[in-house]
Simulated assay, not measured.
Amino acid sequence: MMSESTLPAGNKQRGFGHGGLRLVLLSLINEQSRHGYDLIKAVEELTSGHYRPSAGMVYPLLNQLVEQGLISAEATAGEESKKQVYAIQPAGQKVLADEAARVEHIFARVRQRAKQPIQVTRAIENFKLAVRLKLGNEVLTTAQANQLTEILDNAVRQIEQL
């Protein structure tokens, strides 16, 4: 299972696009009121285990949605824990209505990506991270650049032959 922390910087909402996780959470809350952890699990299920957002990403976003009046947060009755149930508000429903085409596009893209074998997704992310780290940590010599180019070109050829 990939988590938000295993993703390259700048790709924290993989599959959703900029602001997409916000719309996904609103949509899930619109389906039914949920706890934060339930939302994390729902996103993981939606992506067939390809992505599980971290609590450090979800809870601040939920707090932001509450502050914007798009959802409400109610303490769970009878529980000593500080769990909150998040419920959609009319303003949140309006955002979903206004962004309906984008929401459908996000969910369609996520459903398509979720069909891919998870081991392939993991390998792709590891490959991209390895290249970024190699290029970001040092200036390559001409020989290293040529070798890396050869590795990348060979990988492309092998994939095309599948």
Rank of each mutant, 00 (worst) to 15 (best):
Q13C: 04
A100L: 08
F16R: 00
T76K: 14
L61Q: 00
F16K: 03
S72K: 02
D38A: 09
A155R: 10
G92Q: 03
L21F: 01
E138A: 15
K12V: 10
A55E: 12
F127K: 14
A75S: 15
I124G: 03
P90W: 05
G56Q: 08
V156E: 15
D38L: 03
V110C: 04
T142Y: 11
R14N: 00
V131A: 05
K128F: 13
K134S: 12
E138Q: 12
L162R: 09
G10R: 00
A143K: 13
G20H: 03
A97P: 05
V85F: 02
L28C: 06
L7H: 01
P60F: 06
G19K: 05
K115M: 10
R52T: 07
N126C: 13
A114I: 07
E67L: 14
L152T: 13
A114Y: 04
V131L: 14
Q112P: 07
E31Q: 11
E31R: 08
T142G: 15
I118M: 07
K94Y: 08
V103P: 03
A9E: 14
I151E: 12
S27P: 07
L152F: 13
E80Q: 15
K134M: 13
G20P: 08
L162Y: 13
G19H: 04
R34C: 01
L135W: 08
R109F: 11
V139D: 15
L61W: 00
E99D: 08
H35V: 12
E125M: 11
V43L: 03
V139I: 09
G136N: 09
A97Y: 02
Q13W: 04
V120S: 11
G56N: 13
Y86A: 05
G78R: 01
Q119K: 13
V58E: 01
A42K: 00
Q93P: 07
L65N: 06
R109G: 06
N63H: 10
K115F: 10
G36Q: 03
R52E: 05
R122L: 11
L135A: 12
Q112I: 08
P90M: 14
G20V: 00
L39V: 07
Y51N: 04
I40W: 04
G19S: 04
N146E: 13
L21A: 00
Q147R: 14
R157F: 08
N154Y: 06
N11H: 12
N30S: 15
A114T: 02
L148T: 06
G136R: 07
T121F: 02
A55P: 10
G56L: 08
L26V: 02
G10Y: 00
G136Y: 09
V58R: 03
P8Y: 06
L96Q: 02
S54P: 14
A55Y: 05
S81P: 08
Q112R: 13
P8I: 03
L70P: 02
T76G: 07
I151C: 05
R132C: 10
R132Y: 10
R113P: 04
P8V: 07
E80N: 11
V58T: 06
L135D: 14
V103R: 05
Q84E: 14
N126A: 15
Q144L: 12
H105E: 13
E45T: 13
D38M: 07
A55F: 07
A42N: 03
L162Q: 15
P117K: 01
V156T: 12
I159C: 08
A42I: 04
Y59I: 10
A9L: 11
R113Q: 15
F107Q: 03
I88F: 00
L70C: 01
L152R: 02
R102D: 05
E74I: 10
L25G: 00
N146Q: 12
E4G: 10
A91V: 01
